[in-house]
Each structure stands twice: as structure tokens, then as C-alpha cells.
């Protein structure tokens, strides 16, 4: 491996064989961190995420990557995404035992024993990017909003820090950043997806347990995912229009 960057850029015919989106994405990366994506049209996308419970191995890679990518404070009270471990004693879905040590950032030290008749699985959580967001509804000034491409975003420079949205989120996805005193939450890596990259959490997920999807793109695999799996969203009774779809979600998850 002896190419340097300039040689590489000149030599690279590989660009041509990549898909348009991928080469655009790589172009951004190689050009250094770009300001924003000029070619991106928000109205052509409708972002969602697919999570396959059976694929999650609880490695915590998503949690670490998210904190790094989005500069989230490392204390155990601030997470844009986190992973929960469920332990459901047989036949008692009303009383699962749940934990999430440091949000799963350091993985999950063994806690349960095999063969006790329980059901065990991990549940990655993040903002559900609801289409009818209770958090957006309550924001008094419009500092949090649903973008035209279906992402619930925060305008940090406009946020009052009243915390009403934190109260209104049924999923506990929001927190106040102790450094900016504004609210913070998963932005679905808006700076990445607008450049054709996937989110940091999906990027590092080793098993493909979580994948970003564009519901407006007919060729996106998320359609296949939604068609072939039994899918559920979290707390459907809240009628939030959540767009993080879980395959094989157990009834005990809340």
C-alpha cells in the first residue's frame, strides 16, 4: 500500500464503478469535512431506521460511535442512542428486568445464567423520529422541528432550554447538554445522511442489526425489511408516528 492521496485521486478509476451516492459520499470525505451538502434535496427523502432485535449482540459499538461522532458528553446521563438488556422471566412479560449500564457504552458484563427459563435480548434505542412528535408539538419557539426529510432536529442556537420537550418524549431520548444548556438528541446523523453516508451507529454495527432506510427510495432495502418481518414501533399506544421499526420486538419492551 504505497499510494498517497494525490496519486490516489488521479489514479482512481474506481470512482466510476461505485454507485452515484457512494461516490458522492466518498467525495465529501476525501474533500475534507465539507460545510454542507449542496446537492441534497430534503424533499426527496423520508428517513427511517430498521432494527433487527435478533441481530443485536450488545457490543455497544453504536453507543461509542454515536458519542464520538456527535460529541455527546461521556457521562452516563447523556445518550443519543443506547442499548438496553432485557431479561424476561418465562411467561411474565409484564415484569422484565432491564438494565443499561452506562447505556451499553462499555458492553454488558454477564449478569444472568443460562437455562433459567428466561428470554434475553438487547434492544438498541434512539430517537424514533416520530412523524407526529410530541416533543416538536410542545416546543414553544420552534427550536425543534420535523425536517422535510422526516428527521426530528434541534436548533441549538434557538433553544430556550425549557426542557418541556424532554418531558414530552415518551421514549426518554432527549437530554440537556450540560455544555450548551440547549437540548440535544439523535439527529439521525443529519450531517452524514445528507452526504450519502449512513449514520455512525449503523456504520459500525457489525451485524447490521440497525440500518438506515429511506422510505422514499423504492430500491431501499428497508422496504424488504418492512415487508418480510413482523415489525413494531415502541409504545405504539402513544401514536407518535415513530419511524424506527423493530423486527421481532418482544411485548415486554417499553
Amino acid at each position: 500500500m504505497t499510494v498517497n492521496r494525490r496519486q490516489f485521486v488521479l489514479a482512481s478509476g474506481k470512482y466510476l464503478v461505485m454507485s452515484a451516492a457512494a461516490s458522492r459520499a466518498v467525495g465529501y470525505v476525501l474533500a475534507g469535512s465539507p460545510e454542507r451538502a449542496p446537492g441534497y434535496s430534503a424533499h426527496d427523502h423520508w428517513w427511517a431506521m430498521a432494527i433487527d432485535i435478533d441481530l443485536c449482540i450488545g457490543c455497544g459499538g453504536c453507543v461509542r460511535a454515536c458519542k464520538e461522532e456527535n460529541d455527546v458528553p461521556l457521562e452516563p446521563f447523556f445518550f443519543r442512542t443506547w442499548v438496553e438488556r432485557y431479561h424476561v422471566p418465562e411467561g411474565d412479560i409484564e415484569h422484565p428486568m432491564v438494565d443499561s449500564p452506562n447505556g451499553g457504552y462499555d458492553g454488558f458484563p454477564e449478569r444472568y445464567r443460562e437455562g433459567d427459563g428466561s428470554k434475553n435480548f438487547f434492544v438498541p434505542k434512539l430517537c424514533n423520529h416520530c412523524a407526529h412528535s410530541p416533543c416538536v408539538q410542545v416546543c414553544p419557539v420552534g427550536a425543534t422541528f420535523e425536517s422535510p426529510d422526516g428527521v426530528v432536529l434541534v436548533d441549538k442556537d434557538y433553544c430556550l432550554g425549557c426542557r418541556y420537550c424532554v418531558q414530552a418524549c415518551p421514549y426518554g431520548c432527549r437530554f440537556i447538554d450540560p455544555r450548551t444548556h440547549s437540548v440535544d438528541k439523535c439527529s439521525l446523523c443529519y450531517h452524514r445522511i445528507t452526504k450519502g453516508l449512513t449514520t455512525a451507529c449503523c456504520e459500525v454495527c457489525p451485524t447490521g442489526a440497525r440500518t438506515l432506510g429511506d422510505l422514499k427510495d423504492p430500491s431501499d432495502p428497508i422496504h424488504e425489511f418492512l415487508r418480510t418481518n413482523m415489525v413494531q414501533v415502541l409504545k405504539p399506544q402513544m401514536a407518535t408516528g415513530a419511524k424506527v421499526y423493530y423486527a421481532d420486538l418482544d411485548g415486554s419492551v417499553r
Binding site: 490516489f8 454542507r36 441534497y40 453516508l197
Partner: peptide, 29 residues
């Protein structure tokens, strides 16, 4: 665009990247 500052979209999309994505790595490596 809605009840918010339209430029907030740009604020959100101009955050610095930390993960390059594997496509970039594989081009060189």
C-alpha cells in the same frame, strides 16, 4: 420551511464528520 429557522437544517448538516465510512477506506486499502 415550517415553524423553525430554515438555516437550522444547514447547521445540522454542517457538523464535522468523524467516521469516514468504509467505502472511503476501501478505495485506498
Amino acid at each position: 420551511l415550517g415553524h423553525y429557522r430554515a438555516s437550522a437544517l444547514d447547521d445540522n448538516s454542517s457538523v464535522e464528520l468523524r467516521f469516514a465510512g468504509r467505502a472511503a477506506c476501501e478505495l485506498c486499502h
